[in-house]
């Protein structure tokens, strides 16, 4: 039954993806893109990856749709025909497709428990989590401690994106002579009473859910990244309804900057602390006498760092897009 459902959803994914490529109106394409992400998230859920599903839904369907729409309000909605010769592009694509297609026949079948990918490193993570970390969500354990250095990298990637967006379209960035006057995203939907009321009812629940996801991430799907994205979604939703200035009065952009940088510094600071205490970088075990307690403490702090940075960065990016345009 689940297999059939997966196949059905995957077919829908392909159809929406084709729709995104074919749509002449960019607004339509962006909306289809949101649906594509949501379908993908559902597939991930069926494939036993709730953490990934939650993230894809919050980021792919939520945040990136908002960013794309804000960008569209500053650029143009219609796509004009053009581009390189479709024949050449199709040829490149088909050749690449044929090559990967060729590779699929040697792949282990879906779900095979004896596939090499399950037999080596990954097989040890569950017992290692049980003995040395002792938190129920193995994904969080791998993310926050076994591969914590990757996660620090991920936080830095997000921070880099914020630096880039501020550098390119922040308040100090230069404007070209074709800069649009005013910005649709600036004002909000003040004249759409039903949307405002329904939206505002949702906001407290989103924030509550974000906090739950943040502090319950060791036990259930979620963690700093998802929580940060949800918190950002709540604030951005508020901004979309009431205007950018209302959102800025909830958390001031200067505070957001501090959050974005501070979260990454908090994460890195844990690493430096463990070094000073005689361990390796991010070796949480040295934080306390009992290694399992120490792991819990380390994970708690770095997840907080992740959440703070992600929320700060995403809201900051929203402000940058929404404030762009001539005054």
């Amino acid at each position: 039954m689940i297999a059939v459902l997966t196949i059905f959803l995957l077919c829908l994914c392909v159809i929406t993806a084709l729709g995104v490529v074919r749509a002449g109106n960019l607004f339509t394409a962006v909306m289809l893109m949101g649906i594509y992400s949501l379908l993908m998230a559902a597939v991930f859920l069926l494939l036993d990856a709730p953490d990934v599903a939650l993230t894809e839904a919050a980021v792919g369907a939520g945040i990136s749709t908002v960013l794309l729409l804000s960008a569209l309000s500053l650029t143009a909605e219609e796509e004009h025909a053009g581009g390189i010769e479709p024949v050449l592009a199709a040829a490149v694509v088909l050749i690449t497709a044929a090559i990967i297609f060729y590779a699929t026949f040697d792949k282990p079948p879906l779900g095979d428990p004896d596939a090499p990918v399950h037999r080596h490193v990954a097989a040890d993570y569950v017992p290692m989590t049980q003995e040395q970390v002792d938190i129920p969500n193995v994904v969080t354990a791998v993310l926050a401690t076994f591969r914590g250095y990757d996660t620090l990298g991920e936080v830095v990637v997000v921070l880099t994106a914020a630096i880039g967006v501020l550098f390119l379209i922040g308040p100090d960035a230069p404007q070209g002579r074709h800069a649009p006057s005013g910005n649709l995203a600036e004002g909000g939907l003040k004249h759409h009473q039903p949307l405002r009321i329904v939206g505002k009812i949702a906001i407290p629940f989103i924030i509550l859910f974000a906090l739950y996801v943040q502090f319950h991430g060791e036990y259930s799907p979620g963690g700093g990244f998802q929580a940060g994205a949800l918190l950002a979604a709540a604030i951005i939703l508020y901004g979309l309804l009431e205007g950018r200035h209302a959102a800025a009065s909830v958390i001031h952009p200067a505070v957001l900057r501090t959050m974005a940088a501070g979260g990454a510094l908090l994460f890195g600071g844990v690493g430096v602390t463990t070094m000073l205490l005689g361990g390796r970088f991010l070796e949480y075990n040295v934080l306390r006498d009992d290694p399992i307690d120490a792991q819990h403490l380390g994970i708690l702090v770095i997840e907080a760092g992740v959440g703070v940075t992600v929320a700060g960065v995403l809201i900051l990016i929203y402000h940058a897009f929404a404030a762009r345009g001539r005054p």
Partner: peptide, 25 residues
Amino acid sequence: MNLVPHLPALQVVLPLLVAPILVLL
């Protein structure tokens, strides 16, 4: 603290952590 065994990590971590501070300056 003996820094020598940490050198490969410091090579990366030092610029990585100074960068966020610069954002705030």
